[in-house]
Amino acid sequence: MMSIEWLSVLLAVFAGAIRASTPFLLISLGECLTEKSGRINVGLEGTLVTGAMAGYAVSYVSGSPWLGVMAAGFAGTSLGLIHGVACSFRRVNDIAVGIALLILGTGLGIFLGKPFIQPQAPLLPAVDLAWWTEVPQIRAALQINPLFVFGIALALAMAWFFANTRPGLIVRAVGDSSAATAALGIRINTVRTLSTAIGGFFAGMGGASLSLFYPGSWHEGLSSGQGLMAVVLVIFARWDPLRCIYAALLFGGAGALGPALQSIGISEGYHLFNAAPYLLTLGIMLFEYSPGRRIGGAPGELTLFR
């Protein structure tokens, strides 16, 4: 009896991890790209809300959820461009601009999304990975968000991009030493602006994964701070796109642990499970950091870690 209950908890956490981790995965990959180029965008919460709204609205109007995903991406790109261009000016603080965009993006999303709260837009179809089983819980758990699959592919592609391509090397170089790249004649601000804009595209898609798959609706409180977590996730993943996958699954799974335990009658400390990944990150930072040395993998130009 007991073991079946625990199995169901495990299954629920697994299912929750996959379901909840898609926005985490996409925003952390977007943030990873931006931070690799040496800037930080803490405003992805705004991108997430705007992306979720744009995706839902376009899916409703056009009838195609995939067009919605593209629209969400471009909405995110616009916000990323604003961040990128604003921070290209001398003496403009990227963290502060990020917070301003957090507010602007959230405001725009709620403002423009007001007419779309009621109607039901077509949602993204699930990728069915449960052909091999009849157990309903497992079948339910393996209805995968197509954007999750995309995110995994994107993580692999980004890892390859950073390791093996010339533009990937340029992004890393700009992120590690602006003086050296400037000496090579590379336009630092252009590289950083593009990285932020493209990172915004992924983050916008993360928003679409909320509104067009799970929970699959649009309302003002849709995003519960996932966007701000992007920064934490990227640190947890040490600026490695592949580790972003683990980070996203861990953070997604931790959020699912509380409700899963509650479903079998353990309601003690329901909220505290949410804290586990943050405590873990804080612990890592406390031990990783040694004074005078950079945290492993951090881009050298990142204002946060200089």
Binding site: L101, G107, L108, K114
Partner: peptide
Amino acid sequence: PDATAIVLQGIVFL
């Protein structure tokens, strides 16, 4: 909508 004030704040800050 309500959010007008938030949009304006965002623009002012930016």
